[in-house]
Design a protein around this nucleic acid. Structure first.
Length: 337
DNA sequence: CCGCAAATAT
DNA sequence: CATATTTGCG
């Protein structure tokens, strides 16, 4: 019968707002132009042997990149509120970027840096899929529903694929007993985790998997929700955390693989930082920061490198626009039906 | 446009 | 090296 398929949604807000999630970022924000111009990845040699080195970061100067990057223009226009002038947090970021290489090659071929799917972004993704239903859960729709500025269909498609595999994997494993899909267990039974990295598992596990996703045989009719109230309690905390988040942005790799470095972060008052997820998104008007966000918070992330021995990494982090009370657009059913 | 597979970057 | 993400093809 009905089971609680509709319950998972009830906890929607519970899943989102969390002490960790609410990171009052200080918005270092970059101006839109600047943000747009934040791309460029370094031509690492694919070579297998690349030892180390690689140019660390080349922060591209702010070349205005007016035209939309990829053609899709998926951005439905998000009201970008201007960033709040918090200033005072960023003092330097232009120090090492240049690395001598002259950063002049920016604008042309704007290639987007690797997208870092943060738990929150992923959550939004899952929510969107849940809302759309597996049936309509196609990249385009999902992307539109997510309304994340900068997110492209390819990104979603790729992630969607991975997500499907994840679900599939879970089905096979869960058949038998543990009926808990989200039981994750990260290490609990040690049963799974084979093949997939804990990071992946964690990332996906981080978000509630709509039960129905595992049961293809049972299309949960589209239970449309009235709206999704996101009780975001944004309190003003210290900007330090934000810096941490920002810094995390620069170090996405850690998120994926080794979560050991976290040790540096663990200094929260309550010790809530138990997860390796650093990059936290803010619901504020932040856009994307794929740059060498050198935080000014000493003591927090001095250097989180050592994961793969690589040093430079540029990634693009998308911030979901929206925030407090957000409701899904009704694009779900625009075509058929 | 979507899904899958391969390639590349981290 | 393995994984994640990107890119190309059907």
């Amino acid at each position: 019968m009905r089971e609680d398929d509709s319950n998972w949604f009830s906890r929607w807000e519970e899943e989102l707002p969390s002490p960790e999630e609410l990171m009052p970022i200080s918005q270092t924000l970059i101006t839109p132009d600047l943000a747009l111009a934040f791309d460029i990845r370094n031509p690492t040699s694919t070579a297998t042997t690349n030892t180390t080195s690689l140019l660390q970061q080349n922060q591209p100067p702010p070349p205005p990149a007016p035209p939309p990057p990829t053609a899709t223009t998926p951005s439905p226009n998000n009201p970008l509120q201007s960033s709040q002038p918090n200033s005072a947090e960023y003092a330097a970021d232009s120090a090492d970027l240049v690395s001598g290489a002259a950063g002049d090659e920016p604008a042309r071929t704007l290639k987007r840096p690797r997208l870092v799917w943060t738990p929150q972004l992923h959550k939004r993704f899952v929510d969107a899929v849940a809302h759309l239903g597996i049936k309509n859960a196609v990249p385009k729709t999902i992307m539109q529903l997510m309304s994340v500025d900068g997110l492209t269909r390819e990104n979603v498609a790729s992630h969607l694929q991975k997500y499907r595999l994840y679900l599939k994997r879970m089905q096979g494993l869960s058949s038998g007993g543990a009926g808990g899909v989200n039981g994750t267990g990260g290490g609990g039974g040690g049963g799974l985790a084979a093949g997939s990295d804990a990071a992946t598992e964690h990332l996906f596990a981080s978000s509630p998997v709509p039960a129905h996703f595992l049961h293809p045989g049972r299309p949960n009719s589209d239970h449309f929700l009235p709206f999704v109230p996101v009780a975001a309690l944004q309190h003003h905390h210290h900007q330090q955390q934000m810096a941490a988040a920002a810094a995390a942005v620069g170090h996405p790799q850690l998120q994926s693989q080794y979560h050991r470095q976290m040790g540096h972060f663990g200094q929260p008052p309550n010790g809530q930082f138990e997860h390796p997820f650093l990059a936290r998104q803010t619901q504020q008007p932040v856009h994307r920061m794929g740059a060498p966000v050198h935080n000014t918070v000493p003591g927090y992330m001095e250097d989180l490198e050592s994961a793969s021995g690589n040093g430079g990494r540029k990634v693009l982090t998308l911030f979901p626009t929206g925030g407090r009370n957000w409701s899904w657009p009704s694009i779900a059913r625009s075509k058929n039906f």
